[in-house]
Amino acid sequence: MKRVADSWGMLLRFPDMCLGVLDNAFDRCRIRPLKDAPIAAFLLLPALVVLGAFGLLPLGYSAYMSLFGGKWGMGDFVGLGNYAEAIGSRAFWGSFLVTAYYAAGTIPLTMAFSFTIAYLLFHVARGRSFFRTVYFLPYVTSAVAAAMVWRGIFNPQFGIVNALLTRWGIEPLDWLLEPRSILALITGREALVSVGPSLALCGVMLFEIWHGSGFMIVIFLAGLSAIPRELEEAARIDGAGPFQVVRKVTLPLLSPTIFFLAIVSVIKSFQAFNSVFALTGDGHGPLDTTQNVTVYIYSQFYEFHRWGYGTAVAALLCLAIMTLTVVQWRFVGRKVHYE
C-alpha cells in the first residue's frame, strides 16, 4: 500500500522535479555578462517565434509584396504602381470616406452614452453590479450573431422597427438596404442623396455603439473610482449644479481615461470588419456605401485576388492610423490633465 502511495507521490512531483532540474541546468550556464540570458531565451522563445513569424515577418513581406502586380500571387514588379493606382481610385477614397464617417459617428456617441451610463452607475447605491453586467453583455456576444439579430429587427418587410413606424403612421424605411444618405432622408432633398453617410452605414454605426459601449463603460467606471470624491463634494458645497460639477470637475479629472479611449477607439474603428460584414452580408452594403477600408482590402484580396494591390492599400491604411495616433498624442495629449 505504501509503495503505491509513494509512486503516486513520485508522479505528482514529477513536473516539479523536471522544473528543478531545468532550473539547476540554467543556473550552471550562468555566465556573468549574459546574466539570466539562457533562461530568458527559454521563456521567451515560444512567444517570440509566434510574434516574429506571424507579426514582424509578414510586416516586411507585406511591404515587399505591395510592389508587385498580378493576381493569385506576386506577378510582375510594378514599383509604386499599386500605391499610385490606389490614390487615383475612386473606390479607395470612397472606402476611406466610409471609414471616416464611421469613426466620426461612432466614437463621440459611444463615449457620450458610455460616460452617461458609467456616471449614473457610479452614483447609484444599489444594483451597480447588476447593471454593469447587463451593459457589458453586448461586448462579449459575437458581433456576427448579434448582427443577425439586428438584421431581423431592421428587416424592411417584417422587422419590428418598421412595424412600429407603420403603427405610428410613418413611412417604413429600408434601413440596412438603403443607399441614400441620411441627410437626404431627413431633409427630403434629393440633391443630398450622396452627401454624408447612407442610412445603411448609420445602421452599422448604431450597432457599433450598442456593441462597443460596454467596454467603455467599464473603463469609465475604473476612471471614476480613481477620482477623489472630495473634489466633487467641494464643488457642490460651493454651489455648483450637477451639470456644472460634471463639466468643470469630473470630466477634466477623467481626461487621461478619455484620452486612452480616444486613441484605442480610433485604431479600432479604422479596423472594423466583423460588424460591417455580418450586418450587410458581404461588407459592401447597398451601392458600396458601407464598404470601409478593411472591407475594401478584403474584397480586393479575396474576391479579386489582387494580392499586391491589397497589401498596398493595407500599408496606406497603416500609415493613416499611425498619423492619426501621432496627431492625437501631439495635439490632444498635451491637453490631458494628469494629477
Binding site: A47, L48, L51, A53, F54, G55, L56, L57, P58, L59, Y61, S62, M65, I267, F270, Q271, V293, T294, I297, Y298, F301, W307, G310, T311, A314, A315, L317, C318, I321, M322, T325
Partner: peptide, 21 residues
C-alpha cells in the same frame, strides 16, 4: 519594444502575407 511594436500593426497589413505563409 519589438513585442509592443507588433501590437501596433493593424491585422489588415499582415492578413495577405500570413495567408501566403
Amino acid at each position: 519594444g519589438l513585442v509592443l511594436a507588433t501590437m501596433m500593426i493593424p491585422f489588415e497589413v499582415t492578413l495577405i502575407p500570413n495567408f501566403v505563409l
